[in-house]
Amino acid sequence: MDFYQAGLFCTLVCVAISFIALFRERDDIHKILVVDLVETTGLVLICLVATDLAEALILPGLVVGISELLMLAELYIRKEKLPLPSFKPIKIEVMRTAPPIISFVLVVYGIILSGFSGGAVAGIGMVFYFLCKGYEERFELLETVSGYAWALWIAAFFIFMILPQAWLIAVMLSGGAILVKVTTKMALIGAMREGHNV
């Protein structure tokens, strides 16, 4: 028995255990959590293959899983008619004075890095800014920017496939687009502090 088969056997045992848990669970909100557990075992099944292709498949699998989880949570809120909680903004002096300079430095450094890691750095800067300074319903703007960045990324992929000799512009395009995309995605976290447009 090789490693793959042994791992597959263990994972299927995990799947069975999580299914038993789901079967025994009666509370609706706990069901969401157990269902997330079941999904994670699905990702483990992909991880077991352990090739570059499998690594590339993890991300879409994870995204689909998270979007289904979000959808289920939204449905639960709507079903139970739960009210939106309201928070008072935190009053700390550093949070009023520091954000512009720190966010600026992080965003500029992120743009220099470019690509996925640059997007993460610039995104942290924007998360910090939004968390401290607040925002006014910028979700639609961020979503629009993120959508255009995604379209650019796909266009870069098509350049790779159809015009391989123009690889430099495709690299630049995809690097810039992934920077913008990761940045906007992370900035959404900072904008989640308040508001009704979530």
Partner: peptide, 15 residues
């Protein structure tokens, strides 16, 4: 949501 486990599992076992 539970069904995605089987979908991805089927595709990954095939892979």
């Amino acid at each position: 949501m539970v069904a995605t486990t089987f979908l991805f599992g089927g595709a990954s076992i095939a892979l």
